[in-house]
């Protein structure tokens, strides 16, 4: 086993411990022990070699996600408070372009944060998505496809592997 994945994960957990403890150094020994344990667990649960989230890409992705999450909250709050209740709920099917399970599950999570869409988990190369406004279905399906590309980029997946695991 190469050392690089172990080191990069340990670094991630050191960052987590440091931001939790606010940089107080008293507990560094406990932090180090926890980091080793967490890195080992992480390698066990998510062995290296699979597509994985790249840290610097996540740093680009997260703020964008938060901004669109804000729009999502604004959208649903507006609809809930509007006396006419402008919604027409219904389901659509999103064809998934890649069989990478963690990426698809993460995509589902991202879809749940975006305005007007709610994913119900990946299933057989597709994802059932509930839309709050079914009139905007074609626009929604375009934006979901763009979102899928972004998540693939986050995981470093090539879009050409169409339906590998289907």
């Amino acid at each position: 086993m190469s050392l690089a994945p172990a080191l990069s994960r340990a670094l991630m957990f050191i960052v987590l411990w440091t931001s939790l403890s606010g940089g107080v150094m008293d507990g560094w020994a406990y932090g180090a022990a926890a980091t080793l344990l967490a890195a080992w667990l992480s390698l066990r649960l998510y062995p290296p070699g699979q597509p994985r989230v790249r840290a610097w890409r996540a740093a680009v992705f997260a703020p964008m996600l938060l901004a669109r999450g804000f729009l999502g909250g604004l959208d649903v709050a507006r609809r809930a408070l509007d006396p006419r209740l402008p919604i027409r709920p219904g389901w659509m099917v999103l064809r998934l372009r890649h069989g990478c399970v963690p990426a698809n599950v993460l995509l589902g999570g991202v879809i749940n944060i975006l305005p007007g869409s709610l994913a119900a988990g990946p299933q057989d190369g597709a994802m059932n998505v509930h839309l709050l406004n079914l009139y905007a279905e074609s626009a929604a399906s375009d934006s979901l496809a763009r979102e899928e590309k972004r998540v693939h980029w986050l995981f470093g997946l090539a879009d050409t592997e169409r339906g590998r695991d289907e």
Binding site: G72, G73, L74, D75, I87, P89, G116
Partner: peptide
């Protein structure tokens, strides 16, 4: 499902 929209998105914000 629509109620879930309201719960997750509005509460996140």
């Amino acid at each position: 499902p629509s109620r879930l929209h309201a719960l997750t998105k509005a509460d996140n914000v």
